[in-house]
Amino acid sequence: MTEQDIVSGIKSGDQKAFRFLVDKYQKMVLNTCFQFVKDEDDAKDLTQDVFIEVFDSIHKFRGDSKLMTWLYRIAVNKSLNFVQRNKRKRLFGNLESFFSSGNFNDESSDTYNADKPLDDTERSKYLYQAIESLSQNQRIAFSLHNLDGISYAQIADVMNVSVSSVESLIHRAKVNLQKRLLDFYKNNIE
């Protein structure tokens, strides 16, 4: 089934075409969402939403971009919206630690024990918080470039920017992550 077949199939209500699309791209969509939300169940729910959106708005897809690019865009948008909503929820649920700023907004950061090294679960948590603090474009570029098998050219397509912009966004993201992590560990390791 070519991309064109899939699109025209779904447009004409062919269930087989829709199934083909889901089977072919679900892993890609799932892992894209996972890059942003870092929770498997949330990523699965979002993947479901992405394909439902595709089903609903396939008539808007005119083939100016590749189907895959379109899928990436929907996945990124949905994930960022989800993260935004969640952040707001966390903010209201966690006002106290929000005001005790200076380090990352996390209730467990004060339990940091300098005597024993961190494990990777904790490190990933701090890393994720640092990623969350990046500018949106740096975050998108950085998160997408971590995906298996995606090229800079593809990222550029998804973000609608040039390849060199993607390179510089990823570079700046890494520099900023390092700075944030340094600040965090300086504040929490004495």
Binding site: Q35, A114, L118, R123, N146, L147, L181, L182, I189
Partner: peptide, 20 residues
């Protein structure tokens, strides 16, 4: 420790867990 934690955390960024 600060230096090693930053390095360890940054290497985590390059290691991607893949969902099936």
């Amino acid at each position: 420790q600060i230096i090693s934690e930053v390095k360890n955390t940054m290497t985590l960024a390059d290691r991607t867990e893949e969902l099936s």
